[in-house]
């Protein structure tokens, strides 16, 4: 059995660590048991993990939630319930962005980093949106592991993995077996942190300035697209001859 607060051999900190950092597991970081969490490569009690997640998501720049296919596609009652709990969690983070990872198909030649995150190049979305804290939830583990490692390699983003399975060594904070109940505890931890006086980044003068500037830029972009978008004028409007050989 692993012991809580074991001393770290390798710290899992926000990067950028550079190209091809070693996986945290290869450096001796082990996964927590149920009732524990993992913060920066150290196994800690579950309660300490909630606090670390709340602090990171409330105080760091441009907090973002990346919901994966197990959240955004509601093909069962359970996934739909989980999705609504994730939205409740998001509502507790002022200025939060929600950028989905709807599937794992490679997206080339170009992604829209404001609309989507892709496990083949997650760093593009994080760079573009200047995200410094994020939560991955509902992402299948094999893709989450790859994504977390790439994010740590190339960005300064604090990653949180709310994993329904065993957790992730390469996240800065990770909760294993994260079911609906644990997600609600994360939401509660966010509320508690705010009650205790933690000022969310979005409500700080710097955060307000940045979000206002971003909103203004998006407004201008939308206006530019609305006035310059080409209309579809192609022979396909008339259709092809079905019987042509």
């Amino acid at each position: 059995m692993t012991t809580a607060t074991s001393s770290p051999r390798y710290q899992v900190l926000p990067g950028p660590e550079g190209l091809l950092p070693p996986s945290a597991a290869a450096m001796g970081v082990v996964l927590p048991q149920d009732g524990e969490g993992l913060v920066e490569g150290v196994i800690v009690p579950e309660a300490a993990t909630y606090k670390a997640i709340a602090k990171a998501m409330l105080t760091r720049r441009n907090p973002t939630i990346f919901p994966g296919p197990l959240v955004v596609w509601g093909w069962t009652k359970h996934t739909q319930e989980k999705a609504s709990v994730v939205l409740e969690l998001a509502a507790e983070i002022p200025g939060v962005k929600i950028i989905p990872m709807p599937d794992y198909r490679p997206i080339y030649p170009k992604i829209d980093p404001e609309a989507v995150i892709n496990p083949c190049h997650p760093n593009l979305t994080i760079w573009h949106n200047k995200i410094e804290a994020c939560i991955f939830v509902g992402v299948h583990c094999h893709f989450a592991s790859v994504t977390l490692k790439m994010v740590r390699a190339g960005t300064n983003c604090y990653t949180v993995a709310l994993c329904a399975e065993a957790g992730h060594e390469d996240a800065m904070a990770s909760l294993p077996h994260c079911d609906i109940e644990k997600l609600q505890r994360v939401t509660e931890a966010l509320r508690q942190a705010k009650k205790e006086g933690l000022v969310p980044w979005a409500l700080t003068p710097a955060g307000k300035r940045e979000l206002a500037a971003e909103a203004e830029q998006k407004r201008k972009q939308r206006k530019a697209i609305a006035t310059s978008a080409p209309t579809f004028a192609h022979e396909l409007v008339a259709g092809l001859d079905e019987n042509e050989e």
Binding site: P67, V71, V72, W73, G74, W75, T79, Q80, A83, S84, L87, I98, P100
Partner: peptide, 8 residues
């Protein structure tokens, strides 16, 4: 599988 979760 092609149903978006309500709210998303």
């Amino acid at each position: 599988t092609l149903k978006i979760s309500p709210g998303f």
